[in-house]
């Protein structure tokens, strides 16, 4: 009997004659998690979360209330329209009613992120459940799920949300997240259904069936782990969509009325004529923060793509 087994017949790699920098790049290539895009994206988001957490410790949160400071103050060292120079009491300035912008951001940024993440978590869970069911059960169930997700994709979410919010009046952050979740389950459903359909015929699923595995085992132990990269990517994309939708509603004045969020700050700025009064810090700084949030999420998504798909990685 022949023992041992041939390793792949290709010649072995050769590391001689490479510089140290090249070797370091190679190692980085080998460990996909040390991806520069992923690391940058995660740091940006962690930075925003840290702003929310540490800000509460080091800054006075009562400054979010009306009249807590001089109105229309510019950021430190900058003159406003009346020639007053901004002070350290309000490093990022104040709005027309004297609310401190920094305090608004510290409270508002985590709120916006919270809505996005919560909506996405609910939407993804729904999507995973429905996608697996559709792909695995097939038949009539599949038809119902597929058609309803396709129909939902064609309906513009903002239209429904505007009607809903207008009818409801004031709502909480959590309720808003749940409403948005109703519109972000479709694409994960479709994605997972397609993956499950192709995976169902794959050799290792056949092998698992031969091994007497239960449906639950095949779904969650054999298929789900291989879907993780897709799920991550889809999750991050959904967080972005949810935040955009939430901010859109808030800027229209349809968000929660009592809780400061980034979109709400922008709504107030537009409503109180910040553009005419040249109070750029009022709408500009929250916008920059939102932009940063999206850049962070985008980088994480790109980074995860490279982690799960080595062909995108460059040496």
């Amino acid at each position: 009997m022949q023992t041992g087994a041939a390793a792949p017949e290709t010649a072995a790699p050769d590391t001689a004659g490479l510089t140290k920098a090249q070797l370091r790049r190679m190692r980085r290539f080998d460990n996909p998690w040390r991806n520069p895009k992923l690391i940058t994206g995660v740091s940006i988001l962690l930075g925003i979360i840290a702003l929310g957490l540490l800000g509460r410790l080091f800054w006075d949160m009562d400054l979010v209330f009306t009249g807590s400071g001089m109105p229309r103050q510019a950021p430190v060292g900058i003159e406003n329209i009346r020639g007053q120079v901004g002070t350290l009491a309000h490093p990022l300035g104040t709005d027309v009613s004297g609310k401190d912008i920094l305090a608004l951001l510290i409270v508002g940024a985590p709120n916006s992120l919270y809505v996005g993440v919560l909506a996405s978590v609910i939407g993804m869970s729904l999507g995973i459940f429905l996608g697996f069911t559709a792909g695995f059960v097939g038949g009539r169930t599949d038809d119902v799920i597929r058609v309803s997700s396709d129909v939902m994709i064609t309906i513009p979410p903002l239209l429904i949300l505007v009607v809903f919010q207008a009818a409801y009046g004031d709502i909480t952050l959590t309720m808003m997240a749940m409403l948005i979740a109703c519109f972000v389950w479709q694409s994960p459903t479709r994605l997972i259904r397609a993956q499950v359909l192709s995976m169902r015929e794959s050799g290792y699923v056949q092998m698992a069936r031969l091994s007497g595995a239960s449906t639950g085992h095949i779904m969650f132990r054999e298929m789900l782990p291989n879907l993780v990269p897709y799920l991550f990517g889809s999750f991050i994309a959904n967080v972005t969509t949810s935040i955009v939708t939430a901010v859109g509603l808030e800027v229209l004045g349809l968000g929660p009325q009592r809780v400061p969020t980034l979109g709400r700050v922008i709504y107030d700025a537009i409503n109180s004529g910040a553009l005419i009064q040249n109070m750029w810090w009022w709408w500009g700084i929250p916008t920059i923060l939102l932009a940063l949030m999206f850049v962070g999420l985008l980088l994480i998504n790109l980074g995860l793509d490279e982690v799960s798909n080595p062909r995108l990685r460059r040496l």
């Binding site: 794959s202 050799g203 290792y204 056949q206 092998m207 698992a208 031969l210 091994s211 007497g212 595995a213 054999e222 782990p225 291989n226």
Partner: peptide, 20 residues
């Protein structure tokens, strides 16, 4: 295709052995 890329090859041998 017969091995789940997520697991070490032992999984394919061990799982049915224990399952049965």
């Amino acid at each position: 295709a017969c091995f789940n890329p997520f697991y070490r090859v032992n999984h394919a041998l061990k799982f049915p052995f224990e399952r049965f």
